[in-house]
């Protein structure tokens, strides 16, 4: 298969009706199952449909972006499993925040979805297909990562850096094509830093650098975008900017799964919450149902109170 054929882009975020999107997604996923050779191109309409549907219909698509079923994982020589019996559904088009104390298995879960680690028990489905049935390249067309602290050694420009996100669609010997530039440019525009395209990444502020990383991952046109604590090392203003961009991506209908230590950041933009503690899922579901004082107290082991702040939960730790 040539690189040209496998290339695809994010659809424009046109609002589509729930029913048509859901049926398109299921039809396309059924078609993609037997055609492993034509994998990425066959799956393209499914992704297009599901991504576009999400703005209007979170968690309603027929195929969840990620489906974890009783997943277990242990690091060698570890006393207890890093993940145990994790069952969770990451809805297409939703913004799902994973909350939990240090060592709760958040990062392990992200690495598992990325394919860096393999689940030892249970199964991981990505767009309805077992994760293991994708090749490395196919998986990287579906799962994009914004790592916690991306460090660039060489002074690539923001555009050059964003173009690296097209790697999953390029053959080993291929150079980025003009269409890749167009996709990269769209990604830059969707996070609002197209104006910085020709600046070296190394000269950006922490927040802008994080946004460049988000753009690079978006250029992958992933079915699900993973962000590993995207705001943890940023100051208040930069963190706010990144969260605003994430809210914008949510409005564009993109599927996001992110880890955070800040329940209020999660409350600000997440549609769904996954609470974890010691490798187990405490609770999962829509924001308002899960982000309660009782559950957060159970998760973090400190008394937590949740008050209503203009429709959004505000999390306070008791003195």
């Amino acid at each position: 298969m040539s690189a040209r054929q496998t290339r695809h882009r994010w659809p424009a975020a046109a609002a589509q009706s729930r029913a048509s999107a859901a049926s398109a997604a299921s039809a396309a996923s059924a078609a993609s199952a037997p055609s492993a050779a034509a994998g990425p191109s066959a799956a393209a309409p499914a992704r297009a449909a599901s991504a576009a549907s999400a703005a209007s219909a979170p968690s309603a698509a027929a195929v969840a972006a990620v489906d974890l079923r009783n997943v277990g994982f242990s690091y060698p020589h570890a006393e207890r499993p890093a993940l145990e019996g994790v069952t969770a559904l990451i809805p297409t088009g939703g913004v799902t925040a994973i909350l939990g104390p240090n060592g709760s298995g958040k990062s392990t879960l992200l690495h598992l979805l990325l394919g860096l680690l393999q689940a030892q028990q249970g199964s991981v489905l990505v767009e309805g297909r077992p994760q293991g049935s994708y090749s490395r390249r196919e998986l990287s067309q579906r799962v994009g990562l914004v790592p916690q602290n991306e460090t660039l050694v060489f002074e690539l420009s923001v555009l050059e850096y964003t173009l690296l996100g097209r790697a999953p669609y390029l053959d080993l010997l291929a150079l980025p094509h003009e269409e890749d530039r167009a996709v990269a440019w769209e990604a830059l525009e969707s996070v609002g830093i197209a104006g910085l395209a020709y600046r070296p990444v190394t000269s950006l502020s922490g927040g802008e650098k994080q946004l460049a990383t988000v753009a690079r991952a978006l250029a992958q046109a992933p079915a699900v975008l993973l962000l590993d604590e995207p705001t943890s090392h940023l100051d208040l203003a930069n963190a706010r900017r990144v969260l605003q961009v994430m809210a914008g991506l949510r409005a564009q209908g993109r599927t996001i799964l992110w880890t955070t230590h800040d329940p209020n950041a999660a409350s600000a933009i997440a549609s769904d919450i996954l609470l974890m503690r010691q490798g187990r899922v405490i609770a999962q579901g829509p924001l308002a149902e899960v982000l309660t004082g009782e559950r957060l107290t159970e998760t973090y082991g400190v008394p937590v109170r949740v008050i209503d702040n203009g429709g959004r939960p505000l999390v306070l730790v008791h003195e």
Binding site: H111, L114, G115, L116, R136, R137, L139, S140, Q141, V143, G144, L145, P147, E150, T151, L152, V153, F154, L156, E160, L164, G165, A167, P168, A217, Q220, L226
Partner: peptide
């Protein structure tokens, strides 16, 4: 360029 990224990132790009 891809190989000059951190391992985790390069992996996520299918490299």
């Amino acid at each position: 360029n891809l190989l000059s990224l951190r391992d985790e990132t390069a992996f996520s790009l299918g490299v």
